[in-house]
Design a protein around this nucleic acid. Structure first.
Lengths: 249, 249
DNA sequence: CGTGCAATTGACGTGGCTCAAGTGGTGTGG
DNA sequence: CCACACCACTTGAGCCACGTCAATTGCACG
């Protein structure tokens, strides 16, 4: 989530996060062909938009550095954030169905992206089974993540939503080779609350509570996770391979 | 959502919902090849499971008739329903990432499915661009739908969640050529509440309120939408091509 | 006809929203 | 370098929507 000012000519080959991204499992030849269709442009500044709702879909975007939020706007003009994107994430899968961009995507800080023209990607993926598979996998991941968020949001208490949120972020940082216990948030409390369906004030109060419990240390945007276990306990969600018990939902 | 007892040998060719499903845009030859890999088995009875969490992914499932719910189970053994599936829906996209089934999928009523071995589908889709495209499209749709649900659930009030739920169902029935204003729910109030993150009692109370307002007629599982416009008004979500306004979220 | 689950309705308590005030950090212009 | 404005964030007070608990009714099925 820190800015990584890089030169304009960078290839997938020497990209530090390629194992999270489309190149995963691609051999050198395939990688070069993928690389050839990717456009890398100058950095996006905080607040710049990748796309706006309704525009025709031309490219997917892979985050190289920095971070983005995507959100929809409802009848009343209210934002509803549907995801935060970190380096290695692909943005735009929701837009494939209609071939127009769904919602808005906006940089949360200075960020770099790789732009992948969708038509080229589609035809290339027909020639490269590994690429094809990786696209399916990334889309599948996104569905999983959305459903995970849904569970978090549906598990009533604001405490468990926030705990889940931080654990989620933590594991995403870990996968990216960053510290899972200390990180800087690129989003405001407001945006966190929006994402989780709670108000800023509640976010703030619960952060204070977590801090009092010594589960977290909070210094503005800096988060230090002190007691992952307690957070997991109250987060309640995401047990993998959990045996099906008699439920009273 | 009504049971449609069919013979065992049915092809995509004469399937009434093929335009919602994988066959969409496939020519006759392609259709036959797809048809050849699909297995059609005897009906699932209410409560039968398509798959359980952690099992190796072998097939995707297309709902032919009836309906299913998919859900996860958290640490405390609580169900969290992530989607209801109607005829034409594909089930199993979340499971592609890990190649093991994510969560559980269970019939809500007597239902028929087409079982599509994943390996075969994958190799076939490399040969048939139209099939490939349709898979992407369906996955993209699923992501969109999840995010739509998320918006509904995050839009605080229980009223707007329920309104959104019924409008969503209504439009899904309409797409399927069924009445958008009169339909039968195959899920319990409990399951609706679970899905939307509210309690049974609240579902029940709000249904009574909607009925008092003459927006709906409710007779047990039968729903009759009387005033779609009012429901849309309080649902608040899903404005397509809505201009971005100054927001105070 | 009895058993059991689904649904409704009421009474009550509370978590989180709303409104409001205050603090701190950052950028801008004098 | 300070003064000011602006925004993100925190904290408090009060209130209400919704969760919890409990009782009742209705419907399906053996």
């Amino acid at each position: 989530m820190t800015q990584k000012p890089g030169s304009i000519h960078i290839s997938c080959q020497n990209c530090g996060i390629s194992q999270l991204c489309l190149p995963y499992t691609l051999d050198t030849n395939s990688l070069n062909r993928l690389d050839a269709i990717i456009e890398r442009k100058r950095p996006y500044q905080k607040g710049d938009t990748l796309f706006s709702n309704g525009e025709p879909l031309h490219s997917l975007f892979a985050v190289r550095s920095g971070s983005f939020k995507t959100f929809n706007v409802d009848n009343n003009g209210n934002e509803q954030i549907t995801s935060f994107h970190l380096p290695g994430d692909l943005i735009g899968f929701t837009s494939i169905a209609n071939e127009t961009y769904q919602g808005y995507s906006e940089a949360l800080e200075t960020s770099m992206v790789c732009e992948i023209p969708f038509n080229h990607l589609e035809s290339l993926s027909r020639q490269l089974p590994a690429l094809h598979k990786q696209i399916l996998k990334l889309m599948s991941e996104e569905i999983k993540q959305d459903q995970h968020l849904l569970s978090a949001v549906n598990s009533k208490s604001a405490e468990s939503r926030l705990a889940t949120f931080f654990l989620e972020l933590s594991s995403r940082f870990m996968i990216r080779g960053l510290s899972p216990s200390e990180f800087r948030l690129s989003m405001t409390r407001n945006e966190i609350g929006n994402y989780l369906g709670i108000t800023v004030e509640t976010v703030s109060r619960i952060l204070s509570r977590f801090q009092k419990e010594k589960w977290l240390k909070v210094e503005g945007r800096f988060i230090h996770i002190l007691d992952e276990h307690s957070l997991k306990r109250i987060s309640g969600v995401q047990a993998v391979n959990c045996p099906l018990k008699t439920v009273n939902y």
